[in-house]
Design a binder for these strands. Sequence first.
DNA 1: GTCTATATGGGGATAGAC
DNA 2: GTCTATCCCCATATAGAC
Lengths: 231, 231
Amino acid sequence: MDVLMTNTKDNILDAAERLFAERGYEATSMRAITSAAGVNLAAVNYHFHSKERLLQALFTRRLEMLNRKRMELMDAYEAEYGKRPIPIEKLVHALIEPMIDITGERPNSNKAFSVLLGRMYSSPHSSLDGILLSDIRNFAERFETAIRRSLPDIPPEDLYWRVFFALGATIHSLASSHLLQKISRGLCNPDDRKGAQEKLTAFIVAGLKTPTNPGLMKKRLSRTAKTDRGK
Amino acid sequence: MDVLMTNTKDNILDAAERLFAERGYEATSMRAITSAAGVNLAAVNYHFHSKERLLQALFTRRLEMLNRKRMELMDAYEAEYGKRPIPIEKLVHALIEPMIDITGERPNSNKAFSVLLGRMYSSPHSSLDGILLSDIRNFAERFETAIRRSLPDIPPEDLYWRVFFALGATIHSLASSHLLQKISRGLCNPDDRKGAQEKLTAFIVAGLKTPTNPGLMKKRLSRTAKTDRGK
DNA sequence: GTCTATATGGGGATAGAC
DNA sequence: GTCTATCCCCATATAGAC
């Protein structure tokens, strides 16, 4: 905790972030991390006590950045729109843009964490559930209030599901876009972050806005459901 | 390969499927698998040669079922609509329903594989990429042709991206719905498969259908983009 | 704070009896 | 086909010198 503290800790965090994203948590050894970070094997246990707490420290670091960026965007939008509903496009931007653009001190470390985030969301028994939930709680409540005001005709339960689907599409596009490139035979370029984000935003906005069908929707649901939303 | 063959192999596959889904591949030991399956430790290497090939065998088994179900649905829809475009709802159904409803010989084994599938899609360096891609290739080409005919105004690249987002939302809802239950404080019930599938379908259909904005879409894209879709 | 050396345990895989 | 016993390696974590 010195003011001129050596950056051993950060070196370890950066290396671990990259390797966990590439190989997964279990498949990455402490030796691989310390070797990549250029530090001694024992340094990890000295600074972080254990491998698991290294992972937690790593996530806490990024999730605080993520949360802060989201909050800043919400601040700006609420200042801009006051008591009027914030457009869905803006809300979606506050939700997903910070996930896509997590920039770190080191170049390209953001991509590593994006992939890692996708990995970790798919790991039910991880010790990170608590961290994922608690670090996001503040934003989640604020976002919930805002989106309910912007989409008053969508029932709250459906809103939760839809935001959940939106996050799934986002995480998947962060974590597995290499598959898209293969399956599209190169037509889609995952490295075009901005283009992908625009397409993703359009997809999500449409999904969030679509009117709900109150009753059974088994038969021919779309052709006739052209009732325009209020607002 | 006897006709009255012992079900040791299937016991191992079922146990491995469940444990891989719960704990992840790396974190699951051969000893845990054989113990859960009630077979001897050496049986895995005898029947599957290695842990990795056990995983591959497990995926091949399920993906063949998945592919077959998708193909059957496409058969039915193509027979029903002939040369006319198949409605998007139907195409989405053929895409996601088999992923949600992978039923196995044993009860609840389907849920395990759903989670595992979500896990594995997020693992870039997995030895499963080839299996995931090749087993799906036939369906993918057929689906691609069909959706282009049903959504002729969406550029092929955008279609790829949107189907990719749709799969992301689906996989995420399979793999991480436990988080949704927590964050919604019980309002959303992930065990209601049919309800979730309806909401997911509505979300995806809207996202697939939404018109593309050819130029820059930076400023105020939604309020004015009320141009009714063709079709 | 950083290093070397090592304790301690569990992992995948296999040999060889039955 | 199934079992026991074991090989051999690599993992995390720590003790203790510097």
